[in-house]
Amino acid sequence: MTQIQTAPSDTATQLSVRLPDGRWALEILAKRTYEFDDAGRLGPADEQPGFVLAPVWDPAFPELLVADIDTYMYKLRTDVVVQGHVYGDGTAARVDAEVAVAGRTTRLRVVGERRCALAATGELRFSPAAAIERVPLRYTHAYGGRDRVHEARHGNPAREDPRFRGMTDAQLDAASPFLYPRNPHGRGYLIEPTREAVEALELPQIEDPDDLVRTDRLAVGNFMHWHRMPLPRGTDWIDYGWYPRVAMLGVVPVAGDFERPPAEVARGLVPPALAAGDGKKPPHHALEVSSGASLTLQLPYLRGGEAIVLQHIHPRRPRLDLRVPTAPELAIDARKGGAVQAVEPVLHTLLLAPDLRRLTVVWRGCGPTRRRHAPHEFLKMPMRVAWRD
């Protein structure tokens, strides 16, 4: 059954956008939410939430983004975001979970709760991990955080820096050099391995299997060298204030120039312009900020029908197979007396919530136009979204 929308709504709209080459284009965005069963069969949800028009943060964790803006005018890639849990069987202390979309796989090494101890010899040791029942797929459980013991001992220099005069307490707290710029809400970030700091340390439960946190590289030593530490591994949104998203605005936290390219550049996950850590903005930096998914889940545009595989990220099935929903037919105002012009749909955002059995997509299509259109014009401009599901 085809459902057709021909007027702006909470789930479909036209916008003016400036393309990477500087030309103006007329764009259409369309949002759709689906429900799926344990066999991965999709169907439109009875309730269709509207566009998210402003960022939503977790009230318990400042700068922990739980919902990004849907109405970014132009993303350079498809953002894939998975929110939920990794599930174990209650006996194993390790689970290797996966998110695979269109043949590109993000692997997650998930371990049970552990503690770190400082031996009499001065060596750091991890305790055996506890059994896993479920672990939240949030950056709170990935590598990162702040060394609160070190900060309590030395104080937050941002509070004494005249450059930060006039900032709120929350802003000064976020400017501390003793938090991990890639993920200030995670676990495991340690400046100095003092006994007090080690005993207070929480270790991450979600890691990159190819870049695990180890005792011999747990302490960064000099906080200016944070960029040498492991990349957080996650599947949720990256906050605007975290590196590397904030670097797209020309801001590099608590660092001089990098002495070597950070892992994000070495792995080809961000533009090479970020290699020096000098605050130089990459090409199309304003558009780069629009991409907020975890770095390995920012994919070449999806177009509908691609395979999705979730391993150990469903409450009842160790493996869940889905497909990206069929793209809608999109058409923008043709500027010819009420006619519309078909445009190619590409996926801006794919949001998966397996615990809720929900999948949400935001599609984009755009075509050239001679000028920027004012918001009031869109109310009378023809458009068409035809959902084929």
Rank of each mutant, 00 (worst) to 15 (best):
P49L: 06
G90S: 03
E123K: 05
A39R: 15
D96L: 12
V56W: 00
A67V: 00
L137D: 12
R77D: 10
A45F: 04
F126H: 09
A67P: 06
G112N: 03
I69C: 12
R77Q: 11
V80T: 02
L42P: 12
D79P: 14
E151W: 06
G43F: 15
P162L: 00
G50L: 07
G84P: 12
R115F: 07
E98H: 12
E160I: 00
T91M: 02
R159C: 06
G88N: 04
E47P: 05
G50E: 11
D96W: 13
L124P: 15
L53T: 14
L42N: 06
G103S: 08
V135A: 05
V95C: 07
V95I: 13
R109E: 13
L42I: 13
Y87P: 14
A152Y: 04
A119V: 04
A158F: 08
A45W: 06
R77I: 00
V95A: 02
D68Y: 01
Y139E: 07
T106F: 05
P157G: 02
V101K: 04
R77S: 10
V149T: 15
A60C: 05
R148Y: 11
Y143K: 02
G144N: 04
V86F: 01
R104K: 12
D79S: 11
D46H: 11
L64E: 06
G90Y: 03
H85D: 13
R109G: 05
P44I: 00
E123I: 00
N156K: 01
V111C: 04
P59I: 01
G112W: 05
E123V: 00
D147G: 08
D79I: 03
G103E: 10
A54M: 11
G122W: 11
R138P: 02
V66L: 09
T78N: 07
D161K: 09
D89G: 12
A117W: 13
D58P: 09
G43Y: 14
E113G: 01
H150Q: 13
N156R: 02
V111N: 08
V149F: 10
I69V: 14
D37F: 03
D96Y: 14
E63R: 10
P62N: 07
E151D: 14
E47Q: 11
E98R: 15
V66Q: 07
D147K: 04
A102D: 15
G84F: 06
A92K: 06
Y139V: 02
V66W: 03
L137Q: 05
K75R: 15
A120P: 01
R138G: 09
E133I: 01
E63L: 08
M73C: 09
G112D: 07
D37H: 05
G122H: 07
W57T: 10
L42G: 06
G122Y: 10
H141C: 08
S127F: 03
Q83S: 14
R115P: 08
A131W: 09
A130K: 11
E123S: 06
A67F: 00
D147Y: 08
F36K: 01
T78L: 09
Y72T: 10
F126Y: 09
S127K: 05
A45R: 08
I69M: 10
D89E: 12
A129R: 02
F51N: 08
A60Y: 13
